[in-house]
Amino acid sequence: TNFTTRQLTELEKEFHFNKYLSRARRVEIAATLELNETQVKIWFQNRRMKQKK
């Protein structure tokens, strides 16, 4: 998935405060950013892996 700059900014901002999202928060973010819930979930999984390295 190619994310827009706005989407990436918002996802990174959320990640800064929360490494893990509740389902409710994931649904909320997905709706706000016009993404589906799975895209948000996978982005967070990938971002956590990236941070571990």
Rank of each mutant, 00 (worst) to 15 (best):
T1R: 09
T1N: 15
T1F: 10
T1M: 12
T1S: 07
N2E: 15
N2T: 13
N2V: 09
N2R: 09
F3V: 02
F3D: 04
F3H: 02
F3K: 00
F3W: 05
F3L: 13
F3P: 04
T4R: 01
T4C: 01
T4A: 00
T4I: 01
T4F: 00
T4M: 05
T4S: 08
T4Q: 02
T5F: 06
T5E: 15
T5V: 13
T5H: 08
T5Y: 08
R6V: 10
R6D: 13
R6C: 10
R6L: 11
R6Q: 10
R6K: 14
R6Y: 14
R6E: 15
R6S: 13
R6G: 12
Q7T: 04
Q7V: 05
Q7W: 00
Q7R: 02
Q7Y: 02
Q7I: 06
Q7D: 02
L8Y: 06
L8D: 07
L8I: 12
T9I: 10
T9L: 14
T9V: 13
T9Q: 10
T9Y: 09
T9S: 13
T9G: 08
T9E: 14
E10R: 06
E10K: 08
E10D: 04
E10H: 11
E10Q: 13
E10I: 11
E10G: 10
L11D: 04
L11C: 06
L11M: 02
L11V: 03
L11Q: 00
E12V: 03
E12I: 01
E12G: 02
E12P: 00
E12M: 05
E12T: 02
K13E: 02
K13I: 00
K13Q: 08
K13T: 04
K13S: 04
K13W: 02
K13A: 06
K13G: 03
K13N: 01
K13P: 04
E14G: 03
E14M: 11
E14V: 06
E14R: 03
E14I: 06
E14A: 11
E14S: 04
E14Y: 12
F15Y: 10
F15P: 02
F15E: 01
F15T: 01
F15C: 02
F15W: 07
F15N: 05
H16Q: 15
H16R: 12
H16E: 14
H16F: 07
H16K: 10
H16I: 04
F17G: 10
F17E: 14
F17H: 11
F17I: 15
F17P: 00
F17A: 15
F17C: 12
N18G: 09
N18M: 05
N18E: 06
N18W: 02
N18P: 00
K19G: 09
K19L: 02
K19V: 07
K19Q: 15
K19N: 15
K19F: 00
Y20K: 13
Y20N: 11
Y20D: 15
Y20V: 14
Y20S: 12
Y20W: 11
Y20R: 12
Y20E: 14
Y20M: 06
L21E: 07
L21F: 07
L21T: 06
L21Y: 03
L21P: 15
L21Q: 06
L21N: 04
L21K: 00
L21C: 13
L21I: 11
L21R: 02
L21W: 08
S22P: 06
S22Q: 07
S22W: 05
S22G: 08
S22Y: 04
S22I: 02
S22R: 02
S22A: 04
R23K: 13
R23H: 14
R23C: 08
R23G: 07
R23V: 11
R23W: 15
R23E: 14
R23D: 13
A24P: 07
A24N: 09
A24T: 11
R25S: 04
R25L: 05
R25W: 02
R25V: 03
R25I: 05
R25K: 09
R25E: 06
R25D: 02
R26Y: 09
R26L: 15
R26K: 08
R26P: 04
R26A: 15
V27Q: 14
V27G: 12
V27S: 06
V27K: 12
V27L: 13
V27C: 08
V27R: 11
V27M: 12
V27H: 15
V27T: 12
E28P: 00
E28W: 05
E28Q: 11
E28D: 05
E28N: 09
E28A: 06
E28Y: 07
E28C: 05
I29T: 04
I29D: 00
I29E: 02
I29A: 03
I29P: 02
I29L: 12
I29M: 07
A30F: 00
A30M: 09
A30I: 00
A30L: 04
A30R: 01
A31Y: 07
A31K: 13
A31Q: 14
A31L: 10
A31I: 05
A31F: 01
A31T: 14
A31W: 05
A31V: 05
T32G: 09
T32V: 07
T32L: 13
L33M: 05
L33C: 06
L33I: 02
L33D: 00
E34H: 10
E34M: 09
E34L: 10
L35R: 00
L35N: 04
L35F: 07
N36S: 15
N36V: 05
N36Q: 14
N36W: 02
N36E: 13
E37W: 05
E37I: 05
E37C: 07
E37F: 04
E37S: 08
E37G: 03
T38C: 07
T38H: 13
T38K: 14
Q39K: 07
Q39R: 05
Q39P: 05
Q39A: 12
Q39F: 04
V40D: 01
V40K: 03
V40Y: 01
V40T: 01
V40P: 03
V40C: 01
V40A: 05
V40L: 03
V40I: 09
K41V: 13
K41A: 15
K41E: 15
K41H: 13
K41W: 08
K41D: 15
I42Q: 11
I42N: 15
I42H: 12
I42Y: 09
I42K: 10
I42V: 12
I42T: 13
I42M: 11
I42D: 15
I42R: 10
W43S: 01
W43H: 01
W43A: 02
W43R: 06
W43V: 03
W43F: 06
W43G: 05
F44H: 02
F44L: 04
F44C: 04
F44M: 05
F44K: 07
F44R: 00
F44W: 15
F44N: 05
Q45V: 07
Q45P: 05
Q45D: 10
Q45E: 15
Q45K: 07
Q45W: 05
Q45T: 09
N46K: 07
R47Y: 02
R47G: 00
R47M: 08
R47H: 03
R47E: 12
R48V: 09
R48F: 08
R48T: 11
R48S: 10
R48K: 08
M49H: 06
M49G: 08
M49S: 07
M49E: 14
M49D: 12
M49W: 05
M49Y: 10
M49A: 13
K50Y: 09
K50V: 11
K50P: 08
K50I: 14
K50S: 14
K50H: 11
Q51H: 08
Q51M: 07
Q51W: 12
K52M: 14
K52I: 14
K52D: 09
K52P: 08
K52V: 09
K52S: 15
K52F: 08
K53I: 08
K53A: 07
K53D: 15
